[in-house]
Design a protein around this nucleic acid. Sequence first.
RNA 1: GCCCGGAUGGCGGAACUGGUAUACGCGCACGACUUAAAAUCGUGUCCCGAAAGGGUUGUGGGUUCGAUUCCCACUCCGGGCACCA
Length: 802
Amino acid sequence: MEQYDHKKIEKKWQKKWTEEGIYKTSDESDKPKEYVLDMFPYPSGEGLHVGHPKGYIATDIYSRYKKMRGFNVLHPMGWDAFGLPAENYALKNKVHPRQAVEKNIARYKEQLSIIGFNYDWDREINTTDPEYYRWTQWIFLQLFKVGLAYESNEPINWCPSCKTGLANEDLDNGACERCGSAVEKKRIRQWVLRITDYAERLLNDLDELKEWPEHIKELQRNWIGKSEGAEIDFGIAGRDEKIKIFTTRPDTLFGATYMVLAPEHPLVLNNELGISNYEEVKKYIEEAGKKTEIERTAEGKEKTGVELKGVKAINPANKEEIPIFIADYVLADYGTGAIMAVPAHDERDFAFAKKYKLPIRMVICPHYPAPTCPVLDEAYIGNGHLVESGQFNGLPNEDAKKKITEFVGGKMKTTYKLRDWVFSRQRYWGEPIPLIHCEKCGVVPVPEKDLPVTLPEVEHYEPTGTGESPLANISEWVNVLCPTCGGKGKRETNTMPQWAGSSWYYLRYIDPKNQDAFVDTKKEKYWSPVDMYVGGAEHATRHLIYARFWHKFLYDQGFVSQSEPFMRLKSPGLIAGADGRKMSKRFGNVINPDDVVATYGADTLRLHEMFMGPFEQGAAWSEESIIGPRRFVEKVWRQAARIGGTTDASLLSKLHQAIKKVGEGIELFRFNTAISTMMIFMNEAEKSGTIGQGEYELFLKIVSPFAPHAAEELWREVLGHKKSIHLEPWPVYDESKIVSEGFTITVQVNGKVRDTFMIETELSEDEVKDQALALEKIKRWIDGQAIKKIIYVKNKIVNIVV
RNA sequence: GCCCGGAUGGCGGAACUGGUAUACGCGCACGACUUAAAAUCGUGUCCCGAAAGGGUUGUGGGUUCGAUUCCCACUCCGGGCACCA
């Protein structure tokens, strides 16, 4: 038998598996289905580093295992290729984004293929393929039809020097990352999706996702940020206008000693209140407008504000006239953009009141009845009973919330942090939004039969400088006839964000070539939902919320059969560079999987990444320890030459333990311990010398998901099997073969281990205790002291308390 | 500031529902094979101690016959969110 040489076998089998089509998925099967999905990558120009495949290796092992367990498995891969990264890469390298994407995809695919993944490439999808984005556009039209898409003027980050909109990500401390100019807010016409209509369901249905990690669900809950409170109108002294505020603490209304509006509050912007110091106010508004969100929200920032002179608000609870301020710590787009300030019971209001010497009135006392209310040196935000609150005095504050709200004619109201989803970009490289602006009919959807609205070829795909998409410059594309009235119309020139294509791609894999529908209903019913979804935790809030939103919408429209898309979710911990920092070209710590495969082989890379530690935990790359998994593969290889005779009972026992534990480990994504179990078996096998062929084959099968190439080579070339090991059933372990070699009883005195002894078979409690007490060492430790009690844990421990 | 993780030998980590802490791997040391080296195999490897024994899972307390595991307080590290009324 030849020596193990990964270079001789890995490419060979990858080719053969493709030729034999062993990874083809059938839509018709009596088997139960299992849909195993990776978050698809966007093919950047940098190529894969060694951290990227971690999740793919896990799903590869998992899906191979599920196939062996008799499931019909769907395990596809594709490309999320629209969006800024691809566009920026193209701009930088002076090629068309399409060409850049094609090149990068080819590179990614090659890199993935040499690791030996079992994707069904017949189902490959690409979000930039018109046959794909046709359906992305179609889904948008369905949203539009029911009123979930609307136009609105939304603020964006605008770099006045580059003349382009910037994502938060492209900001460097409030300035443009590229040119360093201060970034402004600019309002621009945008398409927005009403995701907030789904806030309550997106929140509640998290409870049904039993197999999602709790911390990811928590992230989503915080992102949705439900809070229950009240909306209350404050009058303005001597005027008819009212100012609506939102508060979660209507119980503290009597303690409201001033009011704060966001600088962008419409009543202030339009100077509708007769403010006497408007010049000063205007200046503050301008200052606030210049600041980025980052500056406005910096930690521990001193509160600033300006009083609106000549105007007073009326506290509706006690009719007191109170001053009104504007301050940038109040945000225009949360709640109503106005608050009542209760300095005694809110930390921010407290800090502000101290600075501007405003009255602080305590209306909730922790101890009731309090002889006097203590002087506060910080806000009291806890519970208590009401004081100085008229007829509500003495009520527990929780009970007072509703009562006070009703008393002043307010209403209880739920708000969410979640904001509607700004769904347009003024960029070239995205799906065109399939709408036409008609002079007569307004906004008209492109008829479904005319989809896709394809991206036209342009000479310049750089941003235009006007804030409009480059598509706006192509008049022959923009000017069209209105599909409704036949009159003059103009195409919408905004494109969709990268999130669009990734919000439904998992459905397209089910039926990737369907020309008549985004997915066939029957196939969708069979494959949905995704059973196992693996991808980075950085997508916990955005991608996973957007996809859940679209899925629920499609469910409501009757297009899909399940209300949630992803049943089980796992996030791989990040693989950092050897220096402990994030792998990045910038730090020069990037390890390319191609190099690792060339040196050690794909099987070793796969084992190593899974053996590094718990799957969901991060780890630094270490080239030093990869030799361990490599030695393991070599041991398995060498053992094939020692097949013959029989397998002794102890090795047989280890084998069945391994079958059991490896299966459980894969199910639970505990690959590191699964691998150590296999190593233990191999060590034992080496010691015993020979192994029966049947037993060796069983072991090869459990190794095969981890090291598919070596296992296949041994199975077919060395052992002479005709069909692939990857089509074999998973071995059934035999509990009776897992023979125990007796039990080691630990004897403790007062909880400290003093001795151990073996019992061959299970004995009665009294017999074990007698044996323990008879031990010489134990006798010495007890040394005539009175035994208070003896605790016995079956087959494990005797603890003698003296 | 808030939320979520985490802290175990020289290093990565293991320990099922509270029951012998340090499995497995790396590294290191010694030995076998070899003229030699590599590879491989074997033995050892938490700390103190000659031994008996004692100590040890970030720190300090608690519950328990018994705590890496449960509870309280704190320190440090990683991630997320951020003046959300």
